[in-house]
Design a binder for these strands. Structure first.
Lengths: 347, 347
DNA sequence: GACGCCGCTGTAAACGATTCCGCCAACGAC
DNA sequence: GTCGTTGGCGGAATCGTTTACAGCGGCGTC
């Protein structure tokens, strides 16, 4: 079932069939409808390989993410995919599992597939990967890669403002000893989050003991590890900010296991606002990061050609603080130098 | 950069280059290595469109899932994808959001892409979808579709045994009044789970009030709804089995909100064993369903040709009960005819 | 020495679409 | 009546591979 069969059936040439397929306006409407009838009758489906061989376009975007098990990414994928398919574009998928090796392999695969664009919604981009993308001239959009040159599009997230809000929230609650559980040090997004946190601390002249600065892995295991450390410290922080929600949730879980109370013994702030954050006990105070917005910008960065490229490059996504129940006023024994206080006025 | 350039550079014909590309054994090894050197030198990447136009194979599988936000599916996707890419196959992805319409649209897209196989790891398959797949003659594997004819492969899950284990577990704990929160009635997997539960109840001559048979949506919202119902009943069940973990987690969350204790006031069993189940408080007793196994069987059902087709069709996946902390011996006020009891011996 | 066979390689015809040209009829202007 | 223009359509080249077929040395066999 090829285009020639349709052409014969409709009594026209293949060129004309192709034109109605691609909705060229140079076909008389009576001819067009006759062709369309034949297409319908014969159940003709154009061959994608032939199409993209000739036209050079595949109508496929590659989407690469770090860790599909982190609920942050399924949201992202869903939005990206539904946006893409509504524009007639399919998405092939690559999961790196935070491995640079798998990232490079994934990019190679996508390049071999001649995808029309690649959304690299991941953090562990190595120089080798960037070089490879650079020489293949395929449109690429990154998520929050500060070191990326202007030849690539980049969606930036305002970590500084986000963590500033988080720290300020804790400060208002009376916390002065605030710890941080970072992500893996080879992840640029994790590094930037950590720096943004430290900036927020500095701006408020809050103390930072290196002991309070823990390293996680952006998974629950990192949080579990951190919890064990924190609750065995001589001088523990009274509040902890985590580099992402999964870390905070792992911490929460271990706190439970150790018989500690959140937020009674420790206030906890996450980052991402996974749906999980509402579900855990206590519901997690966290920074909301809109997946829909990221997916939308990523898609249009690839799709709109270069139309509003510069506009979308300059824009920045703002996280917003969502206060739930994992943070509370500093109280009880933690407020060392002050008398015990029942509660602050009314609330 | 095409194959002709490489051929000239290596001083051979395009046919020979193609042969080394496809590792035909009919090329002298000295020639082959010369060609390989040229490929390397010129950074040649074969054009996938041309390849699949000529060969009729795309080396792409379609993977369609119901709801990527349900953590069950990311696990599935990850395993499927890593298996596929390790065999040189890419996967393009479709999310149906439980919508038959989107399912049909997704299948159409995949068919237009000429994928070499489709894994339909979803439940809401309509007859229209089946017909479409049938006439396209593309290899397809379904997940647990009892009505599917023998012309399709099908991975079956032993719900009867699974729910039997769950009910037996509750019965051993002393529960006699056991409710069920089902999934959407138009989802065949949900219907079959419900039936399996009822079978388990019957086999033990346990009572079933229709009031205890609730309907959810396989998301947390369904569980929330169910919790509100259950805790306002005159004669509530003492234990509830849920059609999946998301439902159980929603129920758990609302129980918390209503000030009820799980498992004190109600024992709870889920289905799937999401990683979430370990994280919620209390950790959820549930039926473990191996995503790796499903993904593996799905992949090989498509990939191994017809080699061990019949073997894989006949095999069945067994869920296994994982006992955590959301189920407990019936106790306190729920044991109507018995005196209140402080706790069971030691613990 | 003729012949057949075998291992390796090249030639060229597909695969199924898109699209550049060029053609033709119709029509208006002069 | 001639000519130019324009809208609509067809012919055929082209995209980059794969692969059937054929060719061509060299070698063993009789």
């Amino acid at each position: 079932m090829d285009i020639l069969t349709v052409a014969r059936h409709a009594g026209v040439s293949t060129a004309t069939v192709s034109r109605v397929l691609n909705s060229s306006n140079k076909v008389k409407s009576s001819t067009a409808s006759r062709v369309r009838a034949s297409i319908e009758k014969l159940q003709y489906i154009p061959n994608t390989s032939a199409r993209s061989l000739r036209s050079g376009k595949t109508n496929v975007y590659g989407l690469v993410v770090s860790d599909i098990r982190n609920p942050f990414f399924p949201d992202l994928i869903e939005h990206f995919e539904s946006l893409a398919t509504s524009h007639g574009i399919d998405v092939t998928f690559a999961n790196t599992g935070y491995s640079e090796e798998r990232l490079l392999a994934g990019i190679t695969r996508l390049l071999e597939r001649n995808v029309d664009g690649i959304a690299l919604l991941t953090s562990e981009v190595s120089q080798a990967a960037i070089d490879k993308l650079h020489e293949s001239a395929v449109p690429v959009v990154f998520l929050n890669q500060p070191t990326i040159g202007a030849e690539f599009k980049n969606i930036t997230i305002d970590y500084v403002q986000g963590f500033s809000d988080a720290v300020e929230h804790l400060r208002m609650l009376g916390h002065r000893k605030i710890g941080f559980v970072a992500g893996p040090p080879n992840l640029s997004s994790a590094v930037r989050r950590r720096e943004a946190f430290l900036t927020a601390l500095n701006a408020r002249s809050l103390p930072m003991k290196s002991e309070w600065l823990l390293e996680g892995d952006h998974k629950t295991t990192g949080g579990q590890f951190a919890a064990e450390h924190i609750f065995s410290m001589q001088d523990p922080p009274t509040a902890v900010v985590c580099s992402n929600d999964m870390t905070a949730i792992g911490l929460l879980q271990t706190a439970h296991r150790l018989g500690r109370n959140i937020p009674g013994d420790l206030s906890l702030v996450g980052f991402d606002d996974l749906f999980l954050s509402e579900i855990v006990q206590p519901p997690l105070t966290t920074l909301h990061l809109s997946r829909r917005e990221i997916a939308t910008r990523a898609f249009y960065a690839l799709h709109s050609g270069n139309a509003n490229a510069s506009a979308s490059r300059s824009s920045v996504i703002q996280p917003s603080l969502v206060v739930r129940a994992s943070t509370a006023s500093i109280a009880r024994s933690d407020r060392e130098s002050q008398p015990r206080q029942r509660r602050s006025s009314r609330r």
